[in-house]
């Protein structure tokens, strides 16, 4: 029996283990190593053995301490991650529930619509919002509000600090994240035996009650999953912010999160400092891992991990 289990396990798990080893563990070790070298411009032959100890970390922390804009970066990171996370999770949940209760055709088109942000190439997606939030009369939002007579002068949305800039980056990233939650929750809802819902309906329960009493409790696991995963990815995301800042749509100080700050320092404008980038990656990873553990503890993850049935 033991031998058989071992065979089964290696059949099921070895591809994954291999991938994790090859593309996480090995690169991670290499990243840690590179973070202690002067590696730049991808010149492996030249810099791989140029060991500098913790120099890159020192440089990074020196910047954190002395950069006049760093405080804004930290504030932005906290607000950005916090609010976007809420939007992602609850927006995704609302969308999944709302589309669950309407007819399939309408539901399908809405899901497709909300998937667009995730499917768009980042540059095109940024372009859409660049024009939408542009701070002059060419901006879509400004032109609507002006023609409705709500405002008389265009509002420079992304340049109103801090909340204007924050709102734009949260909105733009929130839309991308929402679709993730929506898909996960929709799939989860589809797995719930529909007899349960029909039975509740027959008993006269409203959509709200059905959601609260039946659907959401059955999706607890998925909620936890989306929450943790989105938290971690928001912490390290920057591609959707990069162009908005680059194109001066949002204020640089309040449109830059820690991940983007680090990216710009290491790779911005012609300089390609992989040593520094690696150090930053290690720092972000540590923050991420701690953040991940805290979330898991707070959400009492242990309790939810049941022993699988069907073992003998």
């Amino acid at each position: 029996m033991r031998k058989e289990k071992l065979r089964d396990l290696s059949f099921f798990l070895s591809p994954m283990v291999l991938m994790v080893l090859l593309f996480y563990l090995v690169p991670l070790i290499m990243t840690i190593y590179i973070s202690m070298t002067r590696m730049k411009n991808w010149n492996v032959e030249r810099y791989l053995t140029e060991f500098v100890g913790i120099y890159n970390y020192e440089r990074l922390f020196y910047m954190f301490q002395h950069d006049p804009t760093f405080k804004a970066v930290i504030m932005t990171t906290i607000v950005f991650v916090g609010i976007t996370l809420m939007i992602n999770v609850f927006g995704g949940l609302s969308l999944a529930l709302a589309t669950f209760f309407i007819n399939e055709r309408a539901a399908s088109s809405y899901r497709l619509l909300w998937l667009l942000p995730r499917m768009s190439p980042i540059a095109v997606y940024s372009l859409v919002w660049y024009y939408f939030f542009h701070g002059s009369e060419i901006g879509t939002l400004n032109s609507i509000l002006m023609s409705l007579g709500l405002i008389s002068e265009p509002i420079p949305w992304g340049q109103v600090t801090p909340w204007g800039a924050w709102s734009v980056i949260i909105f733009v990233n929130g839309l991308v994240g929402v679709s993730f939650g929506m898909i996960v929750f929709t799939s989860a809802l589809n797995q719930i035996p529909k007899e349960l819902v029909i039975a509740a309906r027959v008993d006269g329960a409203s959509s709200w009650q059905i959601s609260k009493r039946i659907l959401i409790p059955m999706m607890k696991w998925h909620l936890l999953y989306v929450l943790t995963w989105q938290f971690l990815s928001l912490l390290t995301t920057y591609p959707h912010l990069f162009l908005l800042v680059e194109w001066d749509l949002v204020n640089r100080d309040y449109g830059t999160t820690l991940a983007l700050y680090v990216f710009n320092t290491a790779f911005g404008r012609g300089e390609q400092d992989q040593g520094l980038a690696a150090a930053a990656a290690v720092v972000l990873s540590i923050i991420g891992v701690i953040g991940g553990f805290v979330t898991l503890k707070v959400l009492q993850f242990e309790k939810m991990m049941k022993k699988p049935r069907g073992d003998f």
Binding site: E58, R59, Y62, M63, H66, D67, P68, T69, F70, T265
Partner: peptide
């Protein structure tokens, strides 16, 4: 002064 501060913030 902002420029000077920003320059000094990055040791390199």
């Amino acid at each position: 002064n902002y420029i000077i501060q920003k320059v000094k913030a990055d040791p390199e």
